[in-house]
């Protein structure tokens, strides 16, 4: 372990404890860690955006010669002038900095919003609407060579009627009264089972995160032992 590794580990351990101190109550240590993390992480993603997107995908695409020798990806490639479009949109977006022409930035936003709504519309129609209906087209009774499989049939019924009842819960036009009320109430029960199950399932993942952190703190403590 080099000296630098050691220093990084110390700072990391200290930061971890500062964050954990929030669980007791808000305090100056947490405040310090929080503010430092906000500043550092905002800059981290900004640097990443410039280095992994702006330079290789825009600058190098439009003007590959300028980065020859620096950026290997750009060598010997033809300029891709299509990327002038996002450059233009980006400049439109920056018009927000000048109040008089700030409304121009809405044009760039409009492209983004149009893109998001168009792609989402068909993507969800395919993967969530059609595909989910397709997976629910199953027989309510299951017959095996040994005869009727009662348990599997019941389970299939739970699945099909579960989907139907829960869908009924989402109907906006109908007040939840009478028959509709009864069905949608069953729908809520199905949703509750789903929520309970996925909550219970997720607990495990969350605990592992803490184990990892405490293990890290153990390593941190051991590093003190090495010094003393």
């Amino acid at each position: 372990m080099t000296m630098w590794d050691m220093i990084v580990l110390w700072i990391g351990g200290a930061m971890t404890l500062m964050i954990f101190s929030f669980l007791y109550k808000d305090n100056p240590f947490y405040k310090f860690a929080e503010h430092l993390f906000v500043g550092v992480s905002a800059a981290f993603w900004m640097v990443k955006a410039i280095q992994t997107t702006m330079i290789p995908n825009m600058w190098a695409a439009i003007w590959p010669k300028s980065v020859t020798g620096i950026l290997h990806a750009a060598q010997h490639t033809e300029p891709n002038y299509v990327r002038l479009i996002p450059l233009g949109l980006g400049l439109l977006l920056l018009s927000r900095l000048m109040p008089r022409i700030a409304w121009l930035s809405r044009w760039a936003m409009a492209v983004l919003i149009g893109f998001t709504s168009g792609t989402y519309l068909v993507r969800y129609l395919q993967s969530d609407f059609i595909a989910q209906i397709r997976s629910t087209l199953i027989p309510l009774v299951v017959v095996t060579p040994q005869g009727l499989d009662v348990i599997q049939s019941l389970l299939n019924c739970v699945l099909v009627f579960g989907v139907l009842c829960a869908l009924m819960y989402f109907f906006f036009s109908l007040e939840h009264r009478g028959v509709v009320g009864g069905i949608s109430r069953a729908g809520i029960w199905v949703l509750m089972v789903a929520f309970g199950a996925s909550f219970g399932y997720t607990v495990m993942a969350r605990i592992s995160l803490l184990i990892g952190r405490i293990d890290y703190l153990g390593e941190w403590l051991q590093s003190f032992g090495k010094i003393l």
Partner: peptide, 28 residues
């Protein structure tokens, strides 16, 4: 537009009912 969504749900429910009924008849 919310009413329109309800039509979508009705389509989905109808499709599931028809589909699983057909599948059940095939199984039986």
């Amino acid at each position: 537009s919310l009413k329109g969504q309800d039509v979508g749900k009705a389509v989905a429910m109808f499709a599931i009912v028809i589909g699983s009924l057909l599948a059940t008849i095939v199984a039986l």
